[in-house]
Amino acid sequence: MGKMNRVTISVPHGTDLNFRKKAAIKFAFKRGWYGRAVQEAMQLWINIQSASEDGISEENKEYLWKSFQEHMKIESDDPEEILDCIAEFFTSEVKVAEKIEYEMNDNEVTVKKEGSLGPFVSQLVTKKGDCIIFNCPVKIIMDAALKDLTGKKYAVRSEVHTLFSPKAIKESNI
């Protein structure tokens, strides 16, 4: 298991009590239950802080890519052919956007899309603070596909993120 550190922290009473209740249920008061719960919570925090800039973990990107991969029939490891195939799939089959273009410069890809958002909204929502971001599904799939099929990491970015804040939604009566 490796070297262990003893840590002393101060947290609000209510937070600690709620955490202990949940941890006690999960770990059934077995020896080391509280330490395991804190370790799990710390690892979860690290994973969240380590998520990519779009807020979606590499594991979730890979899962999303794998769920679409069988429908795309990509038989190339050429990055531009991969991106062309994905863009075509998302405009003609899934209809996430009316038009999808990308710009590739070395290992950086910028996705530009025009048109509708598509039916996969629930998988594409990221909450940052009190704002909700709808991520570009094409960007996410392109990112995971390039990594999987070429073995290289690309910096794939979307030209625009649709950002909603609770204040804006309340003011517009959505």
Score class of each variant (00 low, 15 high):
Asn60Asp: 10
Trp45Cys: 07
Ala41Met: 08
Ala97Thr: 02
Asn105Gln: 14
Phe90Ile: 04
Gly14Trp: 08
Asn135Ser: 04
Val38Gly: 00
Leu149Tyr: 03
Arg157Gln: 12
Ile132Asp: 00
Phe120Arg: 04
Leu44Asp: 10
Asp77Gln: 14
Gln39Ser: 12
Asn47Ile: 01
Lys22Phe: 12
Glu70Ser: 14
Ser122Val: 11
Ile169Thr: 09
Ala97Tyr: 07
Asn105Glu: 15
Thr91Val: 13
Ala168Thr: 06
Lys153Trp: 11
Val121Asp: 10
Asn5Trp: 13
Glu40Ile: 01
Asp16Ile: 03
Thr15Asn: 12
Thr91Asn: 07
Glu108Leu: 13
Lys73Thr: 02
Arg20Ile: 09
Lys66Met: 10
Arg6Ser: 12
Lys127Pro: 02
Glu171Tyr: 12
Pro119Leu: 07
Leu83Ile: 12
Arg31Asp: 10
Gln123Glu: 13
His13Val: 06
Glu40Val: 04
Asp106Arg: 14
Leu83Val: 13
Ala41Phe: 09
Phe90Arg: 05
Ala144Leu: 01
Phe68Gln: 12
Lys152His: 10
Cys136Thr: 00
Gly14Val: 10
Leu83Asp: 05
Ala168Cys: 03
Trp45Ile: 11
Asp54Cys: 05
His161Thr: 06
Thr150Val: 02
Lys73Trp: 05
Glu75Tyr: 09
Thr162Phe: 13
Ala28Trp: 01
Asn5Met: 14
Phe120Gln: 09
Gly14Tyr: 07
Thr126Lys: 02
Phe164Ile: 11
Lys112Asn: 14
Arg36Val: 01
Glu80Asn: 09
Lys26Thr: 04
Lys127Ser: 06
Gln49Lys: 11
Phe19Trp: 07
Thr8His: 09
Asn173Cys: 09
Met142Thr: 02
Lys139Cys: 04
Ala24Gln: 05
Tyr102His: 06
Glu103Ser: 14
Trp45Leu: 14
Ser67Lys: 06
Glu114Cys: 04
Glu103Arg: 15
Ala24Phe: 02
